[in-house]
Write a protein that binds this DNA or RNA. Structure first.
Length: 678
RNA sequence: GCCGGCGUAGCUCAGUUGGCAGAGCAGCCGCCUUGUAAGCGGCAGGUCGGCGGUUCGACCCCGCCCGCCGGCUCCA
């Protein structure tokens, strides 16, 4: 008997009946047989489904197959390797800490982790020991074997029963309660959907047995040496629920080759160097103090950057038809009770008293904005009414989550509320979606991911209204042919939202912008407009933020550009270095000329002179470390020719006439040109 | 909030198995007048995160608290 399979290039391959993926590889060549770690198989009967299977998995007639190897850069290969690495790590930990119970050990981007319950606490110092034991397991070259067991047999393996050996040859009574729970869940899930209760797949390498879907490397030595490293320890709740016991999570990273691992570790180090907290301190932009954890302090240069961001933001809002407003930070608690924040958000709010009356510090800007709306009668002729606010909000975040500018307890939302008629809603949402992309592009973020979040458990408003609002958001995205991810139950308590995530140069994504449709708040705070029919109508409200938080966006910018900001954002754009004291007067005149040109063009150009008694080399080094885009060295030659020696972002560009340099600088800043990020 | 780790000068870090606390950089002063990433010399700088305890004696040992870092959960 033979079976026929199809290879990726379309060519057929004939194999003996019962042949495995590895056999297919062997039929192609011995080198491939050795390298094969798994297969991608598409069955003829089910052409839409491609399964990733073990090298030992049997093939069936008509399958289309691809051999997965660790050579090349097959993402499936890295994933399989990491998954096996997590098993090997769990095995090593159980060997070193008998009685350890292993819970789950998935792969993550660039690595893997395993959550375990350990009989004694471990420290980072133990990671080296664990790695050593892992290396031993690798060198023992244990075959990794798959078993398919009926539920009762699987429960006997992982349950707390009498130790022994089962019919399958697997050990019994391993006393792994987390695995028992997971198996029970599989059964419950199957029963709930009415599906047949599945067989349980289990993997074994040596004495270690784990519940797992697979696939895995065929044997532990395929993991290789110098290809994995344990990176950190953390606590994690069993199933991510803080009511459950806390487990110890051990993180590791693994790559198919040593070189890739080394490159990754190097990239990590680079990321550490461009940490915005470090850049903020080194460039004297902002600081944090024990006296106010989570509350950033912005220094003069930090405010230069802040103002550059906000000046641009304001100008664009004027163009887009917004008016700017400002509302108080503290308002009566009663307002927050009416708006629904008291019921839905009070754990995150700060409260205070004024003259014995209860007040709250605002966590959002909308109720204040609504009071402005209510300050006079509104006509349909006023709509859409777009009111933007750079509103400083305070939110009580749990102490463990604070992180530089990324997670703080006060931040400035670049908020806006658009009041419009139901008929105008779709067009207004569309306008915001386009505005958002325009703003991101200006800051150098072209790659934007979009998510649509729907009604959460804790919410206000009727079903019809939610459905309507969710429909509008989905229609706009589809009308713009925008790909988006649906996030059920993740909306704000008052309405569904579209979230915008920007991708930075290091591939990380950040949620920034959000658009939220709200029928509830206008109702709660009872706002209306007079229609053409002379009747009162309820407007719809759109909440939106573009950058999200000015503070956080600043942090993202700093990391995206590694501190080398576009010139239009740089807190110090030009630094003039006179070579000797006799050039000081000329240096000062260069500085004044740059500043004057800025004023002339209605731009703020930050130019200074560094005439400290330090060597030229030293002052260049300092300016370079301060990430000043343009260093102008002036000596006898420049004074004579009315020129400047330009050093642009670390590169000596030679001397140029001063007027020419200034003309280019003004154009660069005015057009907000972007450098390469990175 | 929870788990793990950490806290010595502005920054980066040594150090003492319990006996007067150290370096480099930054800062200040002086000399040098300099041509594209660190010129030379000097000076100053610390209740060793805070409070309590043990001890003849605590930066070191113990307890509590605060903050920071990495996660979990949450989120702009």
């Amino acid at each position: 008997m033979t079976l026929r399979v199809t290879l990726p290039d379309g060519s057929p391959l004939e194999l003996d009946d019962g042949a495995s993926v590895r056999d297919a590889a062997a039929a192609i060549g011995p080198r491939l047989a050795k390298a094969a770690i798994a297969g991608r198989v598409t069955a003829a009967a089910d052409p839409d489904v491609t399964l990733l299977v073990d090298a030992s998995a049997p093939l069936r007639d008509g399958d289309s197959i691809a051999i997965v190897t660790l050579k090349g850069d097959d993402p499936d290969a890295a994933d399989i390797q990491r998954h096996t690495a997590s098993h090997v790590m769990a095995q090593a930990i159980v060997r070193l800490f008998p009685g350890a119970r292993y819970a789950i050990g998935p792969t993550i981007e660039n690595g893997f982790y395993y959550d375990l319950q350990l009989p004694e606490p471990i420290a980072e110092a133990d990671l080296a020991r664990i790695e050593k034991e892992m290396a031993k397991i690798v060198s023992q070259n244990l075959p990794v074997e798959r078993y398919e067991l009926p539920v009762d047999e699987a429960l006997a393996v992982f349950g707390a029963g009498e130790p022994g050996t089962g019919a399958s040859g697997l050990p019994l009574g391993l006393d792994q309660q987390f695995k028992v729970e997971l198996i029970e869940d599989l059964v419950t899930a199957a029963e709930a959907t009415g599906d047949e209760v599945p067989t349980i797949s289990v993997y074994r390498q040596g004495e270690f047995v784990d519940l797992c879907r697979g696939p895995h490397l065929p044997s532990t030595n395929k993991l290789g040496s110098g290809t994995f490293k344990l990176t950190s320890l953390a606590g994690a709740y069993w199933r991510g629920d803080e009511k459950n016991p806390m487990l110890t999570r051990v993180y590791g990273t693994a790559f198919p080759s040593k070189e890739e691992l080394a490159a990754y570790l190097e990239a990590l180090e680079l990321a550490r160097q461009r940490d915005h907290r470090r850049i903020g301190r080194d460039l004297d932009l902002f600081s944090f103090h024990e006296e106010g954890p989570g509350f950033p302090f912005f220094h003069p240069k930090g405010m230069r950057l802040w103002n550059a961001m906000v000046d641009f933001w304001r100008a664009e809002h004027v163009k887009a038809g917004y008016e700017e407003i400002s509302t108080p930070v503290i308002l009566r608690r009663e307002l927050w009770e009416r708006s629904g924040h008291w019921d839905n958000y009070k754990e995150n709010m700060y409260f205070t008293q004024i003259d014995d009356q209860p007040y709250a510090v605002k966590p959002m800007n909308c109720p204040g904005g609504l009071l402005i709306y209510k300050s006079r009668r509104r006509s349909y002729r006023d709509l859409p009414l777009r009111m933007a606010e750079l509103g400083r909000v305070h939110r009580h975040e749990m102490s463990g989550v604070l992180h530089g500018l990324f997670r703080v307890r006060y931040f400035t939302q670049d908020d806006a509320h658009i009041y419009c008629t139901p008929e105008q809603l779709e067009e207004e949402v569309l306008g915001v979606v386009r505005f958002m992309q325009h703003i991101y592009a200006a800051f150098g973020f072209a790659d934007v991911k979009i998510e649509l979040s729907t009604r959460p458990d804790k919410s206000i408003g009727s079903d019809e209204v939610w459905e309507l609002a969710e429909g509008v958001l989905a229609r706009v995205l589809e009308g713009e042919s925008i790909d988006y991810v649906l996030n059920p139950g993740d909306g704000a308590f008052y309405g569904p939202k579209i979230d915008f995530h920007i991708r930075d140069v290091m591939g990380r994504t950040w949620q920034c912008g959000t658009i939220q449709v709200d029928f509830a708040m206008p109702e709660r705070l009872d706002i209306s407009y007079t229609g053409a029919d002379n009747e009162e109508h309820r407007p719809v409200m759109i909440h939106r933020a573009l950058l999200g938080s000015i503070e956080r966006f600043m942090g993202i910018l700093l990391e995206h550009y590694g501190g080398n900001l576009p010139t239009w954002l740089a807190p110090q754009q030009v630094l003039v270095l006179p070579i000797a004291d006799r050039h000081a007067e000329y240096a000062a005149s260069v500085m004044r000329a740059v500043r004057a040109a800025g004023a002339e063009a209605s731009l703020t150009l930050h130019a200074d002179v560094d005439d400290r008694g330090e060597s030229v080399g030293k002052r260049i080094r300092d300016a370079q470390l301060q990430k000043v885009p343009y260093i102008l060295v002036v000596g006898d030659r420049e004074v004579e020719q009315g020129a400047v020696g330009v050093r642009e972002r670390g590169e000596d560009k030679g001397a140029r006439p001063l007027a020419e340099f200034i003309g280019d600088l003004v154009a660069e800043v005015r057009e907000r040109r972007l450098p390469e990020a990175g």
